[in-house]
Amino acid sequence: MQERLSEIQNQAKEDLAKAESLEEVEKIKTRYLGRKAGVINEIIKSIPGLPPEQRSSTGKSANILKKEIGKWIEERKSEFNTSSEASLTLPSLDLSLPGEHKPYGHKHPITQTIDEIKGIFRKLGFDIEYGPEVEHEYYNFDALNIPADHPSREDFDTFYLGNKRLLRSQTSTVQIRVMEKKQPPIRMIAPGKVFRPDTVDARHASMFHQIEGLMVDEGVSFSDLKYVLTLFAQSYFGQDIKMRFRPSFFPFTEPSAEIDISCSICKGTGCSVCSHSGWVEVLGAGMVDPNVFETVGYDAEKYTGFAFGLGVERLTMLKYGIDNIRLFFENDLRFLSQF
């Protein structure tokens, strides 16, 4: 029996040395010193069955061993307690390893631009409106004061679908649809896709996005137009940009204007983006033509208004210095994930 005890002593020593955590030490404690099924207690329980001469010495030795193992366990425990505090400074984890990444998705840059512009105009009290992409000729041309066989249609190359249907070549169509439904005051913008059979190159795509804007009320003036579009341009391009309003022509506005901003690439000193003029065109605008009001049944003497339109791709390209419009529709993830 003394042999068995020394075997237990060695085994316990070995087990404790191998233990790697506090939990394991606790398990070892239960295994050796447990009240019910601990190895030492099993021995003590078996004493009455031993030959009488061995009973007393075995009891003594077992108790000594019990105390001894108890002491080792406490020692080992305290070791773990100190080392768990110290482990912070141990070189167990390479903190420079990269973190684990969850995939992160991106909204399309065109969506982001539209969202940003919607946000700016929402702050100015403009509602967001939508209209169909397949349109009747009437909404794309006639109601916008662009008569058939007129050279002004030249500026709006259009895909035709037959039976007076077409893919809208401008979002100005939504102006008409909104004014047909509602009476002034109106303050709205209409973002959406437009289509033109342009030769596709770095600056032209057959599908792109526009945002149309319209404000109609009593007493709306060109001054209001300049105010609203200046706020917009400063908000989108920055407070320090310069703006230039110059006369232009759109069949559905009179007077009409095109709006340039100082080139963001060269800061107005001249580069290829601005064709060395220092200015880049960003918006078309004007006071709503009385013929348009007449078409939708508004009193052009009582109400005045302004309308404007902008190209979303163009604005996005200017903002980020993107040189090819096709990138937006190729949807290369190496491009999309940059925004």
Partner: peptide
Amino acid sequence: TQDNIFDKVTEKTKSVISGLGFDEVITDSI
């Protein structure tokens, strides 16, 4: 500004899907 249900649902949906790791694409209607 008048709120617009289409915009609200669209913006929310895109945020959710992008948040799940999907990139938004825009492709040609033709």
